[in-house]
């Protein structure tokens, strides 16, 4: 080929880009504070997440080794076999193939695949088969854009904030979650606790967690479910046994209805709120929206997107689309006094 192009000139920028990229990705990933994340899959805090984590490291090690090997060969070929400026213009020796080498690079990958496959199959069997005994049962129902949680034994229905007891590794008390959907597909993904499992209408799926540290674990819906898929956040509160028992005890009570907000209650029960929302112990028994019996015991509203404060509640009841455009709750067109009364009423639901 005519008009030899000095390949050095283009090689240098290539190496520079590669090395900067490499430095950037290693140093900033490891050191920068932005890498610490409440939803990091590499910070497992529950058995299923731990066993997945172990497999991840193994797979990363093998794929990393393959990358280094093949990349080195490629880099060597690019540097070593590029056309020189003083090329004699003759064609290089033509090699058409070699059975030995080709058998080698067929057999070695097959062996690697076998190893990876066996390691993977073990973890699948472990996480999917290990139906933990003495597990606590929770039913999670995905709704367009919020989560319903039921505790079958305890007669508790709540929304958006899942409470589970901490699991002592010596005496594990795992939580076994049955996953259902009321409308479209959703996916339950709290990365520090377990991998994701979809919630699919007309189908029962299951997952389990046994978090070993008290605290709040975050996640969010991971299967596109409609307009507000982005704001369908997950919050899992892991509590000590005694805190959890107290919480269950409180949640199983009917609503604490005081007379101070009777005007708000009257409106709530006459304009349609009660068609979608349930308040145990009152006439409201709608199931389309979250159960509000103990609304004020929750930290957040509307699937974790806003803190449960007076202002946000009021704004939500006035027009949900200002916080979550596309949410399945309509603006009810309340005037000022009505809005204040209804807000005051729901604020008594603790």
């Amino acid at each position: 080929m005519q008009d030899v192009y000095s390949s050095k000139r283009m090689l240098r920028p290539a190496l520079k880009v590669l090395s900067t990229l490499f430095c950037l990705s290693t140093t900033s990933v490891a050191d920068s504070p932005t890498f610490s994340s409440p939803t990091n899959i590499f910070a497992p805090a529950s058995t299923p997440a731990h066993s997945i984590f172990g497999l991840n490291l193994f797979v990363l090690a093998i794929t990393g080794a393959i990358f280094v090997t093949v990349f080195s060969l490629l880099a060597y070929a690019v540097v070593k076999f590029r056309k020189r400026a003083d090329d004699d213009g003759r064609e290089p020796a033509q090699v058409y193939g070699s059975n030995q080498v080709e058998v080698a690079w067929t057999v070695i990958p097959i062996l690697i695949v076998v190893v990876l496959f066996m390691a993977t199959a073990r973890v699948i069997a472990y996480v999917q088969m290990a139906m933990p005994e003495n597990a606590m049962q929770v039913v999670a129902v995905g709704h367009q854009f919020w989560w319903e949680y039921r505790y079958p034994g305890a007669n508790v229905v709540t929304a958006n904030e899942l409470h589970v007891p901490v699991s002592d590794p010596a005496h594990p008390t795992p939580t076994f979650i049955k996953l259902l959907s009321a409308d479209t597909d959703h996916s339950f993904w709290v990365p520090r606790l377990a991998g994701k499992t979809d919630l699919i209408p007309n189908r029962t799926n299951t997952t389990w967690i046994d978090p070993q540290q008290v605290g709040l674990y975050l996640g969010q819906c991971a299967q596109y479910c409609g307009t507000q898929h982005a704001k369908m956040l997950l919050r899992v509160y892991v509590q000590s046994r005694s805190d959890f028992d107290r919480w269950i005890q409180e949640q199983s009570q009917p609503a604490h209805v005081s007379d101070t907000a009777s005007e708000g209650r009257r409106i709530f029960e006459s304009i349609g709120c009660m068609n979608c929302h349930a308040v145990a112990g009152t006439a409201a028994d709608g199931r389309f929206g979250p159960d509000l019996t103990h609304l004020m015991s929750r930290d957040t509203i509307a699937s974790g997107i806003a803190p449960n404060t007076h202002e946000k509640l009021r704004q939500w009841i006035q027009d949900p689309s200002t916080l979550k455009p596309g949410a399945r709750m309509p603006a009810m067109g309340l005037d000022e006094p009505e809005l204040n009364a209804v807000t005051a009423y729901v604020e008594t639901l603790r």
Partner: peptide, 18 residues
């Protein structure tokens, strides 16, 4: 190689749809 990571199903329980 990232495909192999996702082919390992448990790894994919995290990676899928992410």
């Amino acid at each position: 190689l990232t495909g192999i990571m996702q082919g390992a199903a448990p790894f994919d329980w995290h990676l899928a749809n992410s």
